[in-house]
Amino acid sequence: MHWRSLTALALAAPTNALIRFSCSQLVIDRIDPLVNPGLIPSPHLHQIIGGNSLNATMDPAKDMPGESTCTTCQFTEDTSNYWTAVLFFKARNGTYKRVPIRANVGSDGAEGGMTIYYMQNGLADYQQASKVTAFKPGFRMIIGDPLASTPEEAQRYRQVTYTCLQDMNTRFPETKNLPNKPCPAGIMANIRFPTCWDGKNLDTADHMSHMTYPESGTFDSKGPCPESHPVPVPQLMYETVWDTRQFNNPDDWPEDGTQPFIWSFGDQTGYGSHGDYLFGWKDNALQRTMDTPCYVNCPTLTTQSIAEQNKCKIDRIVDEDIDSWLTTIPGNPPMRKH
């Protein structure tokens, strides 16, 4: 369903909480506070949004929300950090160009970044009536596997997908692989995190084991959580719109007809897409919001202008060229093709 249609229908229906908001770019840098804390530079490039307390280590013992003086996200109570890898275009001559990010529907003027959702039920369920427990201070998680290179491996993370945008309202179909034809309005990368928590661990060694998908069905179909992970949490979802329009000339694509986009960790299939999350909501703002009837925006939260969220930036830690036509992707990752 198109976003505008969804919004129109929702306005007429009683709802509990579903929030959708834009977050502008905080920094594009080769750091990874979860997988490679303290390692400078990290193996591959990330695009990161959220609070400006971000650093290469992100010690969980510290009060990160309290340290942030601004956030790139629409709601000032949210100083979480969210990040994904970065998409590149590979030209026929073997050089690489970083693909820019364009503002999503409803986020006009946002500089790069992503659209973030927190939901109690599926996106098309206007009632949003399920009870969920908000993440706690110190919580962090990852979904997806950058080493996945086959459809079977990618299927483990069944809600990490792509949408080939015919226009900015396109939301289906979704695929597990990067689109193999030019997309008129760009490529949307969709990251949906698991929604069942073990209720004990704020993190685990692999940043995944404390979370899982529903025992049967999906979050959208209200599948139950398994006994091992009995606590339902909000559906966290990222949408990143990669602005591939300048690269849509078929004469620039590989002569063998394969698609030319490649992730910053060297994956050209798309199966390795992944997302990282570090919770940073202030006080009990997220739980309070999930318990309040509201849709998209919420009276429990303070909304800043897009101009204000665009102002929140941090300096890059790793000094390297990421904007020119490059002979190698930063970090020179091993390439995994179709």
Rank of each mutant, 00 (worst) to 15 (best):
K222S: 08
T161K: 12
F75R: 06
T115E: 11
S80D: 06
G257F: 13
S209R: 07
E111V: 13
T240V: 09
I143A: 15
K62Y: 10
N190M: 11
L178A: 05
Y213E: 09
K136G: 03
Y96I: 01
T71D: 03
T269E: 01
V132A: 04
I49L: 08
N248W: 07
Y157V: 06
T72K: 07
E111G: 00
Q155V: 04
R288Y: 08
K131G: 06
T163M: 14
A56L: 04
P146Q: 09
S5E: 01
M208H: 14
Y238I: 05
P60Q: 10
R140V: 09
S53L: 07
P224E: 11
S305A: 08
T95Y: 04
M188K: 02
P182E: 03
M119V: 04
P151M: 12
D59I: 01
L326M: 10
D291M: 08
G199S: 12
Q287R: 13
D108K: 12
Q309C: 02
Y295H: 15
Q25C: 06
T133F: 10
C23T: 11
A285I: 05
K97P: 00
P293N: 02
D323M: 08
G217F: 01
L286G: 11
D283L: 03
M58V: 04
G275R: 04
N180W: 13
C73Q: 08
F88H: 01
H207W: 15
D203S: 14
D252L: 06
D220I: 06
T84G: 03
I191M: 15
L123K: 02
T163K: 13
Q74M: 03
F172H: 15
G199D: 13
P37D: 00
P179L: 07
H229F: 10
S221E: 12
T163P: 14
D108M: 03
I322E: 06
I116L: 04
S42C: 01
